[in-house]
Write a protein that binds this DNA or RNA. Sequence first.
DNA 1: ATCGGTCCATAAGAAAAGTGTATGGCCGTA
DNA 2: TACGGCCATACACTTTTCTTATGGACCGAT
Lengths: 314, 314
Amino acid sequence: MNNDGPDFGLRALRAFHAIVKTGSVTAAATAMGLTQPAVSRLLAQFEQTIGFDLFYRDKGRLVPTPDGLLLFDEADLALGTMERVRALARDIADFQVGQLRLVAPPSFAEGVLPDVIDRFLSRFPKVHLTIDSRSVETSKTLIATRAVDGGFLKLPLDRPDLTSVPVANSGTVCVLPIGHPLAARSWLDPLSLKGVPLVLLGLGRLSRSHIDAAFARAGVRPEVRVETHTIGSACALATRGIGVAIVNEMLARSYLGNRLLMRPFRPDLRHEYAFVTSAMVAPPRLALEFLSDAKHYFAQQPKDVLDETAGSPV
Amino acid sequence: MNNDGPDFGLRALRAFHAIVKTGSVTAAATAMGLTQPAVSRLLAQFEQTIGFDLFYRDKGRLVPTPDGLLLFDEADLALGTMERVRALARDIADFQVGQLRLVAPPSFAEGVLPDVIDRFLSRFPKVHLTIDSRSVETSKTLIATRAVDGGFLKLPLDRPDLTSVPVANSGTVCVLPIGHPLAARSWLDPLSLKGVPLVLLGLGRLSRSHIDAAFARAGVRPEVRVETHTIGSACALATRGIGVAIVNEMLARSYLGNRLLMRPFRPDLRHEYAFVTSAMVAPPRLALEFLSDAKHYFAQQPKDVLDETAGSPV
DNA sequence: ATCGGTCCATAAGAAAAGTGTATGGCCGTA
DNA sequence: TACGGCCATACACTTTTCTTATGGACCGAT
């Protein structure tokens, strides 16, 4: 590196600065939280290092030399920027600055995340938060490559380069408009849905195959009226009476409005979501903080509509 | 002072900076002239001080975290300004920057100083040099109050707040045009100057009273044709045959040209000049350097015209 | 003039920080 | 599997830096 020129410590420069500012070694010492001899030595050593006197010793008092004043201006600047480094380090440590990039499924981002985000941002107002919605595979790649800091994905995960922490566990419900004949039942199963127009989503996704399997086991052919891809649209269709939507309960709640209601679907198909980060390295601290908020949020959410309506049908 | 925030050393910051720049602890260590464990420790300690990780430990390699990169930019700046402080300190030590303000009598500044200045400035090209000519009293005050760093004054000095170092010792000569009748003599005294038109200077100054006293002792009334105030003008008058000038020999040399010559004046009235600084504090280093050049200059000047023409008259 | 207070410098021992050598773990590659 | 590069830790040693104690110089006041 640059090895020319005198090499002095930060403390020495600070001592010099403080002496000029306060006008005496003693005052500088108290200002720095040191004893007077310590500062005296610091100064003496600093002067010896740079090779010229910073102060006249005038009857025991220190008076800056022209050289000293010349150096002081520059030292003032340098200490200022050092102070900025310290301040920045503190801010980073306190999450006063920073950036967090996450991915989450659209329904997750629309439904449950806003509350978590609200809490998170109130804790870290200065943090820049980004939440994208991508396809599942893209999300996994983004997380694994650390193009984003983390994200919410549905379990199970098939990739070893991802680390997951389960945060939410939801059942499956049927969403139907108020007044629908089946609304009288406290729960629904494939048999009870025989011939009933359905709105299903996620053709090709794992959760969808579970539904299909449940119907198959019951010997019922599902009357799929519409295939869609977001819970929001499925609920919108259900609202208009186009069909009964069979969806993730937790995510459906946000879209119920006042014209829809839920009834548990049986068998109990579970949807488990996890906060996922790259397995390569430790997740960013902000990601952990966000995860903490997410856990907190889910911890105080009603577990399941099944719990609320536990009991026998009608 | 500001005691909040993490306090880390310059070495730690430099180590962090070097690691990011070189990409590895090992490379940073060689760049800093340290061993790898030393830098490793420095980094570990730095991270502990600021409270968050600067690098991912990815399979044994260090990869900067976003936080680390954030801090790096600021650290880069700070180290840059620290480098500027070091450079300035070095320049000050090497007299690559600085200012020297002196005072000197006009004839001094015109006659002998240019050579000294030449030498001084060739040694310290970047130094800003100021030389003023003021009245003797003003000069003393300027020096004593350190409004200027030093100056050349004629001895003796009557003030205890000034420190003087004799640098030049000159005799008194008569300056007369070539072909003047008295040029035949190898020296002149009041008696030989009886009735000869004279050009004298410094009415009221100490040296003038010495000349008057010499004439008085010889019982000769000086035939003063012109009173003037600078040696330059006295010589100019002498050139035109207006009168014989009795002046400081050393200072007169610069004004002789090719139409004047000097003859020692007897009695031998000495003019002693000293480099004067404030007695309150040590003189600035640049003043001492200038003094050194002045001494060097006078050391290789012919001592006195008396020495050259030592011998008997005619 | 002497005394008390202030200020700076130095000495000496103690505490802290920094450094080098040695060593071990981890990973990628031959 | 062995080797080489990289990082972290352990331990002993050196250097720096701190505090306490002390002395000298100066100023103002009694």
